[in-house]
Design a protein around this nucleic acid. Sequence first.
DNA 1: AATAAATATTGACATGTATCGATGAATGTT
DNA 2: AACATTCATCGATACATGTCAATATTTATT
Lengths: 106, 106
Amino acid sequence: MQKYEAAAKLFRILGEPMRLAILDMLSCGELCACDILERLTISQSTLSHHMRVLQQAGIVMARKDATWVYYTINPKIVPDLHNILDDIILPKKNCICEGVKLEDNK
Amino acid sequence: MQKYEAAAKLFRILGEPMRLAILDMLSCGELCACDILERLTISQSTLSHHMRVLQQAGIVMARKDATWVYYTINPKIVPDLHNILDDIILPKKNCICEGVKLEDNK
DNA sequence: AATAAATATTGACATGTATCGATGAATGTT
DNA sequence: AACATTCATCGATACATGTCAATATTTATT
């Protein structure tokens, strides 16, 4: 299972409407937290939580300037996500469907 | 927010290691529930739960034959998922980053 | 009809996490 | 030095859901 946990974690992070809204906003380019907060109906602490999650997952990058923090989407994450999805869902060589039993610690 | 809920739901469903393992197994082709169960260390009821979730989301399709149920990945879901991701994370026209405020009921 | 096998459903429980208000920390301004 | 602004952290709460055992349902077999 361990094999799938990293991928699952990424998908789980994308599995929240608020975070998708934030990523949609960032898709055009850099925004500071206050810009994002202005367009959402969530508390500042909730936004801060989401930005931390997105950052730690490597989905967004942060740049601090004085009291502001500016966020951008990590461009590398886009092909990464596509590849992660394809590696699981598309036919491939040495696939687990060929027979091995999966234990919880694998 | 409603705008992102469908996409978030799909990602959330992909956000479980067990379901990714199941999809990985199905990536080569059709398997029945008992085949999948044989290679995982989860209970039968848990597997049944996951298959129902994957089915209702349109990610896998089910075919019943006597007492067996055979599952396949819905091939349409693959490009769909890529498009959903790109529609959010890549730059685009008429993007919400251009200014509108998002209410919870949107 | 009785039994067996494959899958679904139900109810209970534990865990994870989104959310908030309150507060703290860092930086800039007066 | 005092204050304001921006963001982070903490503690509490509510809700969603993964998991299981037990049971039901469906179909085939004897």
